[in-house]
Design a protein around this nucleic acid. Structure first.
Length: 368
DNA sequence: AAATATGTCAACCGCACGTGT
DNA sequence: AACACGTGCGGTTGACATATT
């Protein structure tokens, strides 16, 4: 059943709101409160649809909204949560008092996304472009056109054009996504396996919860300068690489391989795979993927089995119950900066070398 | 100064979901 | 069970502002 756009009915007004219209909404809400928005236009004397009225109120007129710029703390929160749960703007906005999902979404799309790209971090996966390219290269073209690697190319171009020294002080907020936090985020993404934020929305909210927890813990490790425990998730189910192999792959072991070195002394070559790391054939790769999925599934069941019936509600409850919400919001999470050069900076330094060696990585046509 | 490109953000669209009948 | 309705969400659009050529 396809409903026509509500504003098409009765020639209702669309577009920008006037002060007069705003005043009518405000007067109505102050008198009757919110709710039953379909009745609001009639009662408030507006030629708008109820949906439009609700949107205007929630995104602009609500008295508790902030209209000033996002703070570095808010920026960091958005980036961290996006890394953990993707574009779940309403959930992210709930962690930022006075901000709407529309605010957060717009800010991400216009500012944060671009900044991450320029830092050499893929804003979708929150992993360094270099590593994604390394993974892609080793997969050997198994991915279909139109997958992430396609849009990644555009982000890559902006990243290559970027010069880190041009960045002013406000950018320092992102330094907090440093060489300790980054591996946790990477591992989180690996754990989620083939999770796709846009077309697998219903999949695996529990994994997201796990991801939030992981990101939170990562920042605490950073603050306390303690060594994070080994990341267990999926890697146990994967075939072990040969002992002689010290390089990385698309598995979580790949993510941790580079961490074992200081951010100062790794090479982007570390993010390319040895051939011996690859599955012998596509069949083997399928088996690996299947095993990984099973492992992840069983882990999810161990975490909160009762959540299968209502994942969305369950994740909200679990977040509250486990105190993750508080942990993410706490100041503890805002002190994750490390002294010295970050992983990302080090990666950026080596980016030109990578593209000199592989100029074809910049060719759009390669992926389409 | 004019034309064009780019950035920003309010608003819209379509879909999914919950609830009541 | 089927349907209508209200609401929430995320993606996208388009008007406007600003920067660049």
């Amino acid at each position: 059943m396809v409903r026509p756009p509500c504003c098409d009915k009765l020639n209702l007004k669309r577009g920008l709101w006037t002060e007069e219209e705003d005043a009518k909404i405000l007067a109505y809400v102050s008198k009757h409160g919110t709710g039953n928005w379909t009745a609001v236009p009639k009662k408030a004397g507006l030629k708008r649809c109820g949906k439009s009225c609700r949107l205007r109120w929630t995104n602009y007129l609500r008295p508790d909204l902030k209209h000033d710029n996002f703070t570095p703390q808010e920026e960091e929160m958005i980036v961290r949560l996006h890394a953990a749960i993707g574009s779940r703007w309403s959930i992210i906005a709930q962690q930022l008092p006075g901000r709407t999902d529309n605010d957060v979404k717009n800010y991400w799309n216009t500012k944060l996304r671009k900044r991450l790209s320029e830092m050499g971090i893929d804003p979708v996966t929150h992993r360094p472009f270099s590593q994604i390219l390394a993974d892609y290269g080793n997969i050997g073209g198994l991915r279909k056109p139109g997958t992430r690697i396609g849009s990644l190319n555009k982000d890559l171009k902006s990243a290559v054009m970027f010069k880190s020294e041009l960045y002013p002080a406000p950018f320092q907020a992102f330094q907090n996504i440093n060489s300790q936090l980054m591996p946790a985020i990477m591992a989180t993404q690996d754990t989620l396996l083939n999770y796709n934020h846009t077309d697998c929305r219903s999949l695996d909210l529990l994994a997201e919860l796990q991801a939030i927890k992981l990101v939170t813990e990562a920042s605490i490790w950073t603050k306390n300068k303690t060594i994070p425990p080994p990341i267990i998730f999926v890697e146990d189910s994967l075939p072990s690489p040969s002992p002689s192999s010290s390089s990385s792959s698309s598995s979580p072991t790949c993510s941790t391989a580079a961490q074992e070195k200081s951010p100062l002394d790794f090479s982007w070559h570390d993010f390319l795979l040895d051939e011996e790391f690859l599955p012998a054939d596509p069949q083997e790769e399928e088996i690996m993927a299947e095993n990984s999925s099973k492992e992840l599934k069983s882990q999810k069941q161990n975490v909160i089995p009762q959540c299968e019936t209502n994942n969305e509600a369950a994740i909200q409850e679990s977040v509250k119950a486990t105190g993750i919400e508080r942990a993410v919001l706490s100041n503890d999470c805002q002190t994750s900066s490390l002294s010295g050069i970050s992983f990302v900076e080090a990666m950026l330094d080596q980016e030109p070398e990578m593209f000199l060696d592989f100029p074809n990585l910049l060719e759009e046509s390669l992926y389409y």
